[in-house]
Design a protein around this nucleic acid. Structure first.
Length: 401
DNA sequence: TCTGGGGTCCTAGGACCC
DNA sequence: TCTGGGGTCCTAGGACCC
C-alpha cells in the first residue's frame, strides 16, 4: 500500500501585532495603520524601546523588527507608533487558532501568531491550495486580518513557504519544488540559520541554501558541529520528519529580566530590580503549580556581554524569598559592584509538580512568614488582574452593566 | 541609532565514579 | 604509582526562535 503523502499547512499572521492593532483601530473608526509606515513598540520616549512589529510600508523603508524606535524615527519621521495591547492580541490569536483548528484538529501552535496543521487526512495534494486559500480568506473575512499559508509535505517546507511573498498569500513548497524555489535563496533564509551561522557559512563560500544542500556533512561538521550539521543538511535538502505536536509541552524554565533606562551601578537600585524580577518569576511558578530546584541569575553589561550563574538547591521551592536570596548570593559572586549594569534577570528551572515540599529539619523559621507574604502577593496580583480584565471588558461593551 | 523580553536546545569542560 | 576509558552530573556560554 503506498504511503499517503503528508500535507502540512503553516499559517502565519502578517505583521501580527501591527495587524491586530490595526483591526481594533479600524473598528474604532481610525485610519488603517497597515497602509502607512507604522510600528508597534514600547514607550517611544524610552530610548531603549525597540520595534515589536512593523507594517509592510515601514518594512519597505528598512524598518525591521527589533530596530530601536529612535532609529526607526530617524529613518521615517512621520512613522506612526502604537503601543501594544496584549489582551486584544490574545483574543485575536485565539480567534485565528480556532479557525485553523476547524480545518484540522492536528494543530501545533508555534507561537502567538503561527501554527502548523496536518492536513494529510483532510485533503489530497491537488486540493491543498484551494483549501489553504479558503482558510486564509475565512480568517480575513471573519477576523479582519490577513495571513500567509505555506503548504508543503513537511513542517519545514510549509514554514519556508509561508515566508514567501506577503501579505494574504498561499504558497506551496513541495519536495519537487525545493531546487527551484528554495535553493536559490540566501542561506540566512533557512530556518535555524541565524546571523552567526550565516557568517560562518558565507566565510566558507556557502551563500545559498542550494550551496548548503550540496555540501558534504563532513565539511559542515567542521563549521557548526555534528548534530547541527546533520540537521542543516537535511533541511537544506527539504527533508524534515518532525510531527505536528498537538500536546502543549510543559514549560522547562521561567525567567524575567529588566533592562534599565540608564545603566545602573547603585547596589540598592539593582537590588530593587532583582526583587521585582524574582517576584515575577516566583509568582509565575506558583500560578502554574511548579516548584523549581535550580535558580539562575544573569547580568548584562553595557557592551551586551552576559554573565550568568546557576545553582541547584537541595529542595525545590516556589518561595520568592528563597529564590531572591539565591539570586542575591550569586549576584555577589559575579558582579564586582562597580561596573554599570544594563540588565538583571532571574530564572528558575528543574521544575517539578511536587505537591508538598519536604519539611527540612533545619527549615528557616521565617519560612511561614515568607509563604504568607507570597500568598498575599499572589492575591494582590490576582485582584489587579481581575480589575484589569473587567475594565477591558467594560471598554469593549460599554452598553453593558 | 544603539539595540526588549521570554523561551529552547546544544556544547564543552570539569568533577566524580567505576 | 600511573594509566585508560566511559558514563553522568553540573555549570557556563552561545546559538536560535518569536
Amino acid at each position: 500500500m503506498p504511503q499517503r503523502p503528508r500535507i502540512i499547512f503553516h499559517i502565519d499572521v502578517n505583521s501580527a501585532f501591527l495587524s491586530w492593532s490595526a483591526v481594533k483601530m479600524v473598528r474604532e473608526g481610525q485610519s488603517d495603520i497597515r497602509l502607512v509606515p507604522s510600528v508597534v513598540s514600547g514607550d517611544p520616549s524610552d530610548r531603549r524601546s525597540i520595534v515589536t512589529a512593523a507594517s509592510i510600508p515601514a518594512k519597505k523603508m528598512g524598518i525591521k523588527v527589533a530596530t530601536p524606535v529612535t532609529m526607526a524615527l530617524r529613518t521615517c519621521p512621520q512613522l506612526v507608533i502604537v503601543r501594544g495591547d496584549w489582551e486584544w492580541y490574545k483574543q485575536c490569536s485565539e480567534g485565528f487558532i480556532a479557525i485553523c483548528r476547524s480545518y484540522s484538529p492536528v494543530l501545533q501552535q508555534f507561537s502567538i501568531d503561527e501554527c502548523f496543521i496536518d492536513m494529510s487526512l483532510r485533503c489530497k495534494p491537488d486540493d491543498a491550495v484551494n483549501l489553504a486559500t479558503r482558510l486564509k480568506d475565512e480568517i480575513r473575512e471573519r477576523l479582519g486580518f490577513t495571513v500567509n499559508v505555506g503548504v508543503g509535505s513537511n513542517k519545514l517546507l510549509a514554514k519556508m513557504a509561508s515566508d514567501f511573498e506577503k501579505p494574504d498569500r498561499v504558497h506551496t513548497l513541495w519536495e519537487d519544488e525545493v531546487q527551484e524555489k528554495m535553493w536559490p535563496l540566501p542561506v540566512r533564509d533557512l530556518l535555524w540559520v541565524g546571523k552567526k551561522t550565516e557568517e560562518r557559512l558565507v566565510a566558507y563560500g556557502i551563500k545559498t541554501i542550494g550551496d548548503l544542500a550540496r555540501l558534504g556533512t563532513g565539511s559542515l561538521t567542521q563549521l557548526v558541529g555534528r548534530k547541527f550539521a546533520l540537521q542543516l543538511h537535511e533541511n537544506a535538502n527539504g527533508r524534515d520528519d518532525s510531527p505536528v505536536e498537538t500536546e502543549v509541552a510543559e514549560a522547562k524554565s521561567y525567567s524575567a529580566e529588566r533592562t534599565f533606562k540608564e545603566d545602573l551601578v547603585e547596589p540598592k537600585d539593582i537590588d530593587r530590580a532583582l526583587f521585582g524580577v524574582a517576584c515575577i518569576v516566583a509568582h509565575r511558578i506558583r500560578r502554574d503549580a511548579f516548584r523549581a530546584s535550580a535558580v539562575s541569575m544573569f547580568i548584562k553589561y553595557m557592551d551586551f556581554s552576559v554573565v550568568q550563574k546557576q545553582h541547584q538547591m537541595e529542595q525545590p521551592t516556589d518561595v520568592t524569598a528563597v529564590i531572591l536570596n539565591e539570586a542575591r548570593r550569586m549576584l555577589d559572586e559575579i558582579w564586582d559592584g562597580v561596573t554599570p549594569l544594563r540588565q538583571v534577570g532571574v530564572g528558575v528551572s528543574r521544575l517539578t509538580h511536587e505537591s508538598a515540599e519536604q519539611m527540612s529539619l533545619f527549615e528557616d523559621p521565617k519560612m511561614d512568614y515568607y509563604r504568607e507574604w507570597d500568598r498575599q502577593y499572589d492575591e494582590r496580583r490576582a485582584r489587579a488582574e481581575d480589575a484589569r480584565l473587567l475594565a477591558y471588558e467594560r471598554k469593549k461593551h460599554p452598553e453593558g452593566q
